[in-house]
Design a protein around this nucleic acid. Structure first.
Lengths: 123, 123
DNA sequence: ATATATGTATAAGATTCTTATATATAAAAA
DNA sequence: TTTTTATATATAAGAATCTTATACATATAT
């Protein structure tokens, strides 16, 4: 009945800015192919409802990634409606991996900026 | 002569989007008060030249944080030029700490989205 | 004399996201 | 049986956030 036993706090954190492409590419890296609605549901599940990726944000991203040659599409007719599948191209697979490394590097950089110097001997 | 022995790779990563306020607030949390130019230099040093915070990004942030009551300013005349110091208000100190927690939560959320399900038993 | 370092600040433009809206079918609940 | 919820793709207006360019000004090093 209820999807979550406890209401989850939603993070529409400003930190998300600039991470959505990376999220989409990496979800696709794990699942062969997905369609838009499926991606929003996967994001919701994996974050326990913390992150709700909206269509207004998702579709422009999908279209841009396709245009950049990182995704390829395949349209399938289901129940009289067109379902559009997205899958990584070889170039997209490579980019997905690069983004993860870049993210880890970014996190380390942020930590060096956020930690207090008394704890870290920064001079 | 050379500030860095090895040329550092610059990260003007898209991940930075939305993190600059957090960075500025936390630099100020460690140093009593700082002026704009000093902040750009501190960012450069702490990240070994990886992140170069430009003035075009910094000043609008400082002004906005002041307007929100998170920073207070003090102008000092040095060599015929006005140097404007920024310091955290009590509210700014609180926000700085909150941002760090929020960032750590964000990183965990990102990891749950970026990791491959074969490694992580996601379902 | 020229370049580099120090210093504050605005403005035009690009990118990225949020919120609102449009369209449409199927299943479940009231 | 009517309404709500879930499923499905997509655009557009607007807000927020950064990048790049520019303006102004002094001091020091080359």
């Amino acid at each position: 009945m209820y999807q979550f036993l406890y209401p989850m706090e939603q993070t529409n954190s400003e930190f998300l800015r600039g991470t959505l492409k990376t999220i989409v590419l990496n979800l696709l890296a794990n699942r062969e192919r997905m369609y838009g609605y499926e991606i929003t549901q996967a994001v919701k599940e994996r974050t326990q409802g913390q992150l709700l990726l909206t269509f207004g944000a998702l579709y422009p991203i999908l279209h841009k990634l396709e245009q950049e040659g990182l995704l390829m599409t395949e349209s399938v007719e289901v129940d009289g409606r067109t379902r559009k599948y997205y899958a990584l191209t070889p170039s997209g697979t490579e980019t997905a991996q690069q983004k993860v490394s870049e993210f880890e590097r970014f996190v380390e950089m942020m930590r060096s900026l956020l930690q207090s110097p008394t704890l870290a001997l920064t001079k």
